[in-house]
Every structure is written in C-alpha cells, then in structure tokens.
C-alpha cells in the first residue's frame, strides 16, 4: 500500500466515524470557499457485510447494515467519496466534500490541522474512555488456558 493510499484511508475512516455534529461544525469554515459538483447525490442503501471466521476462515455473510454514500467533484477536479454508516445524508456529503479537498495540496495541510486531527484526537479519547469503563468490569478467571492463544 502506497503512503498516499494509507493516508487517504486514514482520513476517510476518521471522517466516516466522526460524530455528525462535530464534523459539520469543524469543517464549515474550511470548505466555505470551495465549490462542488454532485456526481452521486447522497443516497441511503443497504450493504451486506461479509466476514471470515477468526479472520482467516471461510467467508460468510455477517449481516446487512445501512450505509449512506455520496460522490462529489471539487472545483480542483478531484473526486471525493463518502461512505458512512447510518442514514445521515449531510454527514456523507460532508465526508465526500472533505475527501475531495484533502486530495488537493492547497487544502491538505490546513484541513488536516483543523478537521482531521481534532476528530482523530476525539476518537482516541472516546476509545480510551470506553476501554477504561469496560476494563473495570473485567474478570480474571484462574485457569491455565483462557483460550486466547
């Protein structure tokens, strides 16, 4: 995987998992002077999630989930894709717009600083809080093998 793809994968993941309100609030000033053309208007659909037993076994259908997707083109000519769990069209639209802008050198650093990094920090914090809360309920059984290996 090239660094470019890894970077894009990271910001797409951050944008998709961010809380909608925070994302819209943080990105509002940053995209105010950009123009977008809708290639695929935000639409809600169902995707089938497939999984592998233990990550390596045979593939099976885990279940369906709701997904909202959107594609836009910025006035720089870059195409942005947004795929977001749930039914929030504004979220998918904003994720696509930001994805398009993040591919341009003019906006990349600025947006990373203003939007991606704060969202990433927020995500880390939320994860830590959750981990801490869950950790308090952990029970250690005194057995020789716990079945993790």
């Amino acid at each position: 995987m090239t660094p470019d793809i890894a970077r894009r994968r990271h910001w797409m993941s951050v944008l998709a998992q961010a809380p909608t309100d925070t994302l819209l609030q943080l990105s509002e000033p940053a995209i105010a002077d950009a123009e977008f053309e809708l290639i695929r208007a935000p639409e809600i659909g169902l995707v089938q999630v497939r999984a592998r037993a233990g990550g390596t076994g045979a593939a099976f259908n885990l279940g369906d989930m709701t997904l909202t997707r959107c594609v836009v083109r910025s006035h720089f000519g870059t195409t942005g894709h947004g795929q977001v769990a749930g039914r929030s069209k504004p979220h998918a639209l904003r994720a696509a717009q930001l994805d398009a802008l993040l591919q341009t050198p003019q906006f990349d650093a600025h947006l990373h600083q203003r939007v991606i990094e704060p969202l990433e920090r927020q995500r880390q914090r939320a994860r830590h809080t959750e981990q801490r809360d869950v950790e308090t309920t952990r029970v250690d059984f005194f057995t020789l093998v716990r079945g993790e290996d």
């Binding site: 809708l38 290639i39 695929r40 208007a41 639409e43 000519g77 195409t79 591919q103």
Partner: peptide
Amino acid sequence: MSQPQLQAGFANPV
C-alpha cells in the same frame, strides 16, 4: 488522480 472523469448521472435516480 489521472482517472477518467466521472460524470453526474440522473438528477433524481429513482
């Protein structure tokens, strides 16, 4: 990003 240009399809797909 030198992929072929994507273009908007139907305005109201349904």
